[in-house]
Design a protein around this nucleic acid. Structure first.
Length: 578
DNA sequence: CGTCTGCCTG
DNA sequence: CAGGCAGACG
């Protein structure tokens, strides 16, 4: 397809029709890319990770470095075997159960540790409280285990203990109006939760052992078997998350039941029967908050009034859920199921987009502006830390009363998806950062490639073109720099193309690195230096030969450069990359 | 026509 | 980097 340099260019400096050859190039590019990929795959089969990390065989010391300096994100990689899993499970379940314990007691007795330590001396009471607590947990566990114990009797005895304890408490001693059947139901649901959790875990265990058996040795990858490592990390992460999710559900049910109708005075609510004065005040405050914003999904400032007293997260919530290497206590069994079905690198775009609804429900005009800002910031910064002061759980995440019951499940689901994958309708600064790093590998990504490498983005026409626009802008900057430095080289008296090279010390490289890798926390692949060098040489030659008199002189260069795209490492496919 | 692309501008 | 524009498609 011949390009015509016609009237359209009379008033423009650039060749308008560069697009045409570029389009016809894309097919060829695809083909050559496929060749390159095949070739690289074949030649890298028996290379050590370091050797094939950039696909070239130079001697520079950088090549012995891992492609990614991600040590800050990597936890020491323990031997990957079943015991790790078991350990994780034990750890998580244990911490979960202690939380369960605390929550249960909080709802049952509503006497928090804080209140006890802050109030008058209740040490005797504390003693009894702890005993009752232990007994109740035992009851729960007995119930879940499906033993032939008499749950009614157990509950009865627990209640009698509670009643006994109630006599020592000064205020708000409401009769226990909760029907016994509710307790049974509770136990039953707990049991079901546990069983389904066990099923999921079993599946995951199988999956893991399968993966581990078939990939016991890390296969050479672009960055040194990192895809396997990634998978391991993913699985580890998902396992932990699943356990957490399951137990959180139990958690949630317990939290929800006793206080399902918070908008009303606590009188008919048995679990709230033992609240202290201070808590009563807090609840007043809470209710007034709820009226302004009863259904908001905004993460509310976790002030004390909105915390379940005495309930503490068994693990810190400030961990970044999007970085592998941390065990991530998030809630999303969907993800596990997806993982089981499709593996860790599949796109999750089928999940509901929650960001939009979250954002829609948090208009700027809202009273708690800093909260909506916080949420907005979270929504737009994949990988931001979820920080809750003192490890307390915002009631929101426990589906507490200010959220209508019929919405609870949906909200939980949406929030879970949001927290876990952060499926985006818009692109975030982190996406931009990632795109820039990807530019070190590919200057001309296809929209399919982009879709594959941004699995946490809900693609639509707009998003796609925005991403493409980004890369277009990246190229623009890249080529401008190239031209600038090529002309400078000529001015500096360079005559031979051979004298042109680009190292990591080069000014040009610094400029590019500053642009695409501002934080300088990414080890730029050597291949990029080669491509940049070739580009610079192309520009140098062209300008030297005065080809720049042709309005479309750059087109020929683009044609060369677009063939030099590399594969983007699999690591980038992770939605949690960065 | 709508879509896509590159160039230019702010 | 995004918006706007113009040319090139199908």
């Amino acid at each position: 397809m011949l390009m015509t340099v016609g009237s359209g260019h009379a008033h423009t400096t650039g060749p308008r029709s560069e697009r045409a050859p570029e389009r016809s190039l894309s097919l060829k590019r695809l083909q050559s890319n496929r060749f390159l990929r095949l070739k690289r795959t074949v030649t890298s089969m028996n290379l050590s990770p370091a050797e094939q990390s950039d696909g070239c065989e130079g001697n520079r010391s950088e090549q012995m470095l891992p492609c990614f300096r991600r040590s800050a994100y990597d936890e020491p990689l323990a031997p990957y075997n079943g015991s790790v899993i078991s350990h994780l499970l034990r750890k998580t379940i244990h911490s979960k159960l202690s939380s369960l314990d605390m929550l249960y007691c909080a709802n049952e007795s509503a006497a928090t540790d804080e209140e006890q330590s802050g109030g008058e001396d209740l040490s005797v009471d504390v003693e009894q409280h702890l005993q009752a607590k232990r007994a109740r947990v035992e009851n729960i566990i007995r119930g879940m285990a499906g033993s032939h114990g008499d749950p009614e009797r157990d509950c009865e005895s627990a209640r009698s203990r509670r009643d006994k304890r109630k006599q020592k408490l000064p205020l708000h001693q409401e009769p226990d109006a909760k029907p016994k059947s509710s307790k049974d139901e509770e136990c039953h649901k707990l049991k079901e939760q546990l069983q389904s959790m066990q099923r999921l875990l079993h599946q995951l265990q199988e999956k893991i052992s399968h993966v581990y058996d078939s990939e016991g040795e890390p296969k050479p990858g672009f960055s040194g078997g990192s895809s396997v490592k990634n998978l391991q990390e993913t699985l580890k992460c998902e396992l932990t998350r699943t356990v957490s999710e399951s137990i959180d559900s139990v958690f949630k049910k317990l939290a929800m039941k006793p206080s399902a109708s918070p908008e009303h005075k606590p009188s008919q609510d048995d679990s709230r029967s033992e609240v202290s004065d201070s808590e009563e005040v807090s609840r007043e405050h809470f209710e007034s908050d709820s009226q302004t914003e009863a259904l908001s999904l905004v993460v509310r400032k976790p002030s004390q009034s909105q915390m379940i007293p005495g309930v503490k997260r068994p693990f810190p919530l400030h961990q970044t859920p999007f970085q592998f290497g941390y065990s991530t206590p998030l809630h999303d069994s969907q993800i596990l199921e997806h993982l089981l079905k499709y593996g860790p690198h599949s796109a999750f775009s089928g999940l509901p987009c929650v960001t939009a609804s979250l954002e829609r429900s948090s208009p700027d005009s809202m009273e708690h502006s800093w909260e909506s800002v916080a949420m907005r910031s979270k929504a737009h910064h994949l990988g931001q830390h979820h920080h809750h002061p003192a490890g307390l759980v915002p009631v929101d995440s426990l589906c507490l009363p200010h959220v209508k019951m019929e919405c609870a499940d949906l909200q939980s689901m949406e929030r879970s998806s949001f927290m876990a994958l952060n499926i985006q309708e818009g692109l975030t600064p982190n996406h931009l950062k990632k795109a820039k790093l990807m530019f070190f590998y590919t200057r001309y990504p296809s929209s399919n490639l982009l879709k594959n490498f941004f699995p946490d983005v809900k693609f639509n026409r707009c998003i796609t073109s925005q991403l493409i626009k980004w890369f277009s802008n990246f190229r623009e900057f890249y080529y401008i720099q190239m031209e600038k430095f090529a002309r400078q080289a000529i001015i500096d008296g360079v005559t031979d193309v051979k004298d042109i090279s680009i190292t990591r010390e080069s000014e040009l490289f610094r400029a590019l690195n500053m642009h695409y890798n501002k934080a300088n926390d990414f080890q730029v692949p050597d291949r990029f230096l080669e491509v940049a060098e070739i580009t610079l040489q192309e520009f140098f030659s062209a300008v030297s030969l005065s080809k720049d008199s042709d309005p479309s002189w750059k087109k020929a260069i683009y044609k060369v450069i677009c063939k030099l795209d590399s594969d983007v490492p699999e690591d980038f496919k992770s939605p949690s990359y960065l």
